[in-house]
């Protein structure tokens, strides 16, 4: 029987496939059926925060920063409460990262301000002497893509039943409404910022990437 398998490529391939697929079937597959339950109080991202999250992904911030506080005293002392599964229920994709070249950002919104981020993103070493983080000046000139962020929010709402527009949850509404909400939200951030060009652009109706990513980072709590 064994030798027969070794000479019949088709059945051999089927055999190999069964053996390698088996681990996935047992460990990963069952959990697909159980969609991760959000913690009470965990909310999906607003459109502006989602646009900021896209900036975070675009520049691969997750290559150097984790968003996963492990349950050790040394980590909770440094970064805050350890992470819970439900807190990630609306994270598509997850951004846990695999390397901490820089510190964890899971709860960075609790201890950094808009103003701090603005200066830090422009020139990290001015806030943290010795920092090896690159400066992200282009975030001050690139415009955030609110449209794609809305498209994503709309998609997860209609395909995965993410509870936008429900009681106590962020409003999504139509594209026109979402734009208004995003601008109102951005206004609060821009008011706290100093950069004249970002303010000028905002007056013209453009939301720069830096505004969106700060909205996202502030939402990480």
């Amino acid at each position: 029987m064994f030798h027969w398998l070794e000479k019949n490529p088709f059945f051999f391939a089927v055999g190999v496939f069964l053996v390698i697929a088996y681990a996935g079937i047992v460990t990963v597959l069952p959990d697909f059926m159980e969609s991760a339950r959000p913690l009470k109080g965990t909310k999906p991202y607003t459109v502006l925060q989602l646009a900021g999250r896209h900036v975070y992904i675009k520049d691969s911030c997750n290559a150097c920063h984790s968003q996963m506080i492990r349950p050790f005293k040394s980590e909770t002392d440094r970064y805050g409460k350890y992470s819970m599964s439900g807190e990630y229920a609306y994270d598509r994709p997850f951004l846990w990262g695999s390397k901490r070249t820089g510190p964890d950002l899971m709860r960075v919104g609790n201890y950094r301000t808009t103003n701090w981020h603005e200066i830090h993103m422009y020139k990290p070493s001015s806030m943290v002497p010795g920092s090896i983080m690159p400066s992200y000046k282009h975030m001050f000139t690139n415009t955030a893509d609110i449209e794609t962020a809305y498209a994503e929010a709309y998609t997860v709402k209609s395909v995965f039943n993410v509870p936008y527009d429900e009681e106590d949850m962020p409003k999504l509404g139509t594209w026109e409404e979402a734009q208004k909400t995003a601008i109102a939200e951005a206004q609060l951030i821009v008011d706290d910022m100093k950069d004249p060009q970002v303010k000028e652009a905002f007056a013209r109706g453009e939301i720069k990437e830096i505004v969106a990513i700060i909205a996202y980072l502030n939402s990480l709590q």
């Binding site: 697909f32 969609s35 991760a36 599964s85 807190e87 990630y88 229920a89 609306y90 994270d91 598509r92 994709p93 997850f94 893509d145 449209e147 794609t148 962020a149 809305y150 498209a151 994503e152 709309y154 998609t155 997860v156 209609s158 395909v159 995965f160 594209w175």
Partner: peptide
């Protein structure tokens, strides 16, 4: 799904953990 935004953008079928 939404008919707007970047054509190549996608969102993961799985969330979080």
């Amino acid at each position: 799904v939404a008919g707007m935004g970047k054509w190549y953008h996608s969102v993961s079928m799985y969330a979080g953990s």
